[in-house]
Design a protein around this nucleic acid. Structure first.
Length: 644
DNA sequence: GGCGTCTCATAGAT
DNA sequence: CATCTATGAGACGC
């Protein structure tokens, strides 16, 4: 790389470090909750360009403080009221971690951190919890049979029939010819704490998505075009089979390591971390013994938005029961829903008054056909009824009310939607598009903090500007592909430069970090819609420059940004190090030459796929590009920022 | 405890 | 943008 080394600025903060940039998965604290009564808060991702950062804040942009403080779940809740006197008025046993939580009439809310799921010292595998009620003491026993603190998978050899086995045995049944699965390697063991914590959860989600992208890339390489590719399910299955999961034991209430506001992109992710176990079903429930009786209780629901009442407020949810749907394939017509399974569990939870986790699914507005799921915290059932559905059959309806005192999550996303739709005017907008149309997506300039009208002396440049021409790059020749470049094509020079693969999966997400990403460019003969063109298509996500609270100007985004997403070009005016006036405290000068952090985690679990672990690209190249350098087909090189 | 059957709702393709 | 469909963990029953 010939970019000029600028070095650390005189502010003393070493900006040459690129830290472990992780997917933005949580909207707290990047979306600080609005003060009470403030109707149109600025619900944006908060990412100041440099530290120090306030307690509990950690930006996702690669200019940040390595020692980000770890928030704990407890910090999310006011702990001012432990209200030990009140029992549930419905006579319920007060099941859950809140032995004596009041019935919701009081706005105060307290949830202590969950008790340990096992006792490592004495091997006690059964937890007995006493809870009082108006009817006198009752004992809730949750049977826990984990022998140790780790969840190792039970090997499910039966699931690994070859396609031939299925053909031989499955003629009489409703057989689905499933593709051959990858057999787990019995010698491979991963130790994942059975009771999750923040780090475990984040690590699992990180691994899942890395694996998922790798599997999608492999799937893209296969020549067969038929069939639906579900790399998310495949990645999940693999992780399950290797015991890469946590909180496998169902629990009511808070799931250790999962925080309100956490974002999920796939249902499978919620299974892996124990937030919601069923891959498909919207209601998760558990069976247990209360007072010697078998009881079934709902523990979590996923609200997909399809049935939601339009008039709902953020803390009220009308949820439909499951079952009774028509199924053309199996010739089933719509029928009345039955009070069984999830429906029964919700009914029982209404009686018991236990907390139910709610995950709100919604369309990702900036990304058509994609969905996101936001964990919206704990709700309680308030009432239930049946009504006629569209097909004229009976459908159960459940009204859930959000437990007060929890940080905002779903409502913040709702308010972003209002801003997108322009139904709510925004305060503090200085420029609707500071790029003046240079980018395809407007980049707003806002200040909702004070009266400053914008960062002084700045001109927006969409690309990198060198003070001297650089001619170090070898002239490159474009590929001769006729339509779209195909991975594994030995005749495509662009694919060969990328080690035989396309660096992106079909939705334009980067599969794996690499010092160079070689994209097709103007000298290639392939169509402009070739999948190997992403960063040169410019900004896609919604960004804006905003005034921070006391830390100058920063950048934030409205979008839930998936790992591997191209964010923007790392653009600006290149200044030679010798010409930087060290006495001038210009905090907007950053080093263009960066190194990968040695601890940067990139692990798509090659062992699982029985691959050789790829060589670490930064081992020998400590002065490589900071960000992912994109090389276009025609001698154009520029550094791009990807969220990884 | 083991095995087979059934239930669920997507995520991606068309 | 609507419609189609392959898909897997868990519950449940024997």
């Amino acid at each position: 790389m010939e970019q000029t080394e600028v070095g650390s600025s005189s502010s003393g903060y070493d900006k040459s470090q690129v830290i472990d940039v992780r997917p933005l998965r949580c909207l707290v604290p990047w979306f600080p909750a609005p003060p009470l009564g403030y109707q149109t808060p600025p619900p944006f991702v908060y990412a100041p360009p440099f530290g120090p950062f306030p307690q509990g804040y950690s930006p996702f942009y690669p200019f940040f403080n390595p020692s980000e403080p770890q928030r704990t779940s407890e910090q999310n809740y006011p702990q001012n009221n432990q209200n030990n006197g009140t029992a549930n008025q419905d006579g319920g046993s007060g099941f859950g971690y809140n032995n004596n939580v009041d019935n919701g009439a009081s706005p105060s809310y307290y949830t202590p951190p969950p008790a340990p799921r096992y006792n490592a010292e004495n091997g006690d595998t059964t937890r007995t919890r006493k809870s009082s009620s108006t009817r006198g003491d009752s004992v809730v026993v949750i049977s826990e049979s984990e022998e140790d603190g780790y969840s190792n998978s039970k090997k499910r050899t039966a699931n690994y029939l070859s396609s031939m086995d299925i053909q031989e045995s499955g003629s009489s049944q409703r057989s689905r010819s499933r593709p051959k699965k990858i057999k787990p390697n019995p010698d491979l063991k991963f130790m994942v704490p059975a009771n999750g914590n923040r780090e475990t959860v984040n690590d699992l989600l990180f691994k899942f998505d890395a694996l998922r992208r790798k599997l999608a890339q492999i799937e893209d390489t296969k020549e067969v075009t038929a069939g639906i590719k579900r790399a998310d399910l495949k990645a999940g299955t693999l992780m399950f089979n290797y015991g890469l999961r946590t909180n496998a034991k169902k629990i009511v209430g808070i799931v250790p390591g999962v925080e309100i506001g956490d974002i999920y992109f796939f249902r499978m992710e919620m299974c892996l971390v124990g937030l919601h176990a069923p891959v498909m079903a919207g209601i998760d429930y558990m069976s247990l013994k209360i007072d010697q009786e078998d009881e079934t209780l709902a523990v979590s629901i996923v609200s997909s938005g399809g049935y939601e009442d339009d008039a709902e407020y953020g803390d009220v949810l009308i949820y439909s029961g499951q079952g009774g749907a028509a199924n053309k394939k199996e010739g089933k017509e719509a029928s009345d829903q039955k009070l069984e399974r999830g429906n029964l569990a919700l009914e029982r939870s209404l009686r018991r008054g236990n907390d139910v986790r709610v995950i709100r699914g919604m369309k990702d507005v900036g990304n058509v056909s994609a969905r996101i799921y936001v964990y919206d915290g704990l709700y309680r059932l308030q009432e239930s009824w049946t009504e006629k559905g569209k097909a004229g059959t009976n459908v159960f309806k459940y009204k859930l009310v959000r437990v007060p005192g929890q940080p905002e999550a779903f409502m913040l996303w709702k308010s972003i939607q209002l801003w997108r739709d322009n139904t709510v005017s925004r305060p503090g907008v200085i420029l609707p598009d500071l790029t003046s149309g240079t980018e395809k997506v407007p980049v707003c300039l806002v200040n909702d903090v004070d009266a400053e009208k914008g960062p002084a002396h700045f001109t927006y440049v969409p690309t990198i500007k060198y003070s001297k021409p650089i001619n170090s790059m070898q002239p490159s020749i474009g590929c001769n592909c006729r339509s779209s470049c195909a991975p594994g094509d030995p005749n495509c020079s662009c694919v060969i430069k990328n080690n035989g693969d396309l660096p992106y999966i079909s939705n334009g997400v980067l599969v794996i970090r690499s010092p160079f990403v070689h994209e097709c460019g103007p000298s290639c003969l392939c169509y402009p819609n070739c999948k190997n063109q992403v960063s040169q298509n410019g900004l896609k996500i919604k960004l804006e420059v905003f005034k921070t609270q006391g830390k100058g100007w920063g950048l934030r985004s409205w979008d839930p940004i998936r790992a591997g997403t191209f964010v923007c070009e790392y653009a600006g005016q290149v200044v030679e190090l010798s010409r930087v006036d060290m006495d001038e405290d210009d905090e907007y000068i950053f080093s263009a030459a960066r190194s990968f952090d040695k601890n940067f985690k990139w692990n798509y679990l090659p062992e699982i796929l029985e691959e050789e672990k790829p060589a670490d690209p930064d081992e020998s190249d400590t002065t490589g590009s900071s960000c992912w350098t994109t090389r276009l087909g025609q001698d154009t090189v520029y550094p791009g920022l990807y969220l990884l």
